[in-house]
């Protein structure tokens, strides 16, 4: 089946199988590796990507469902250097192993895009679908809150 998709600003036209999931196509066919394979059933959020401005679990989306849509991953938002949020994540030593980081960066980016000054509860809610086993979330939440406070009203 034909798939036409824009990934991080680049147009791709691919022939995919009906059962191919978006995550595998991104990783194996397009070479975008920041979305990770963690559970393959939508529980962990490691495969989070932004589709047309909203985060989705790329392991739960068939590649053909993304036909005609625009996908953004961490590679895409990092081309022009780190965002303010990413910089705060780095300065705050927010992540440990970093496997969940691409998904969390995207979920938090989506939150701040829609709600520039989130409360702690807002941040927890926005990140509740991204599992992190290392950090206890605190240093991640702190950085997102700091990015919110520093963001434009």
């Amino acid at each position: 089946m034909n798939l036409t998709i824009k990934v991080n600003g680049e147009d791709w036209a691919l022939d995919v199988a009906p059962a191919d999931v978006l995550l595998d196509v991104l990783r194996e066919r397009i070479g975008v590796k920041s979305p990770k394979i963690g559970c393959e059933r939508g529980d962990c959020g490691s495969c989070t990507v932004i589709m047309d401005g909203r985060t989705v679990r790329s392991c739960l989306i068939l590649a053909v469902e993304a036909d005609g849509h625009e996908i953004t991953t961490v590679e895409g938002i990092s081309y022009d250097g780190m965002s303010e949020l990413q910089t705060l994540f780095i300065q705050n030593n927010s992540f440990q192993c970093g496997f969940c980081a691409p998904g969390i960066v995207l979920s938090a980016t989506e939150l701040l895009d829609n709600n520039p000054n989130p409360t702690r509860h807002d941040v927890q809610e926005a990140l509740a679908g991204n599992l992190c086993r290392c950090t206890g979330y605190e240093p991640i939440i702190d950085a997102v809150l700091a990015a919110g406070e520093g963001g434009s009203e």
């Binding site: 961490v74 994540f89 780095i90 030593n93």
Partner: peptide, 23 residues
């Protein structure tokens, strides 16, 4: 001192490569 992690940029930018990411 609470130095910034030397692997921080790798992990937050998507540059960090895990085994499954290798070609």
């Amino acid at each position: 001192t609470s130095a910034v992690r030397i692997d921080g940029l790798d992990k937050v930018s998507g540059a960090a490569e895990f085994v499954d990411d290798m070609d």
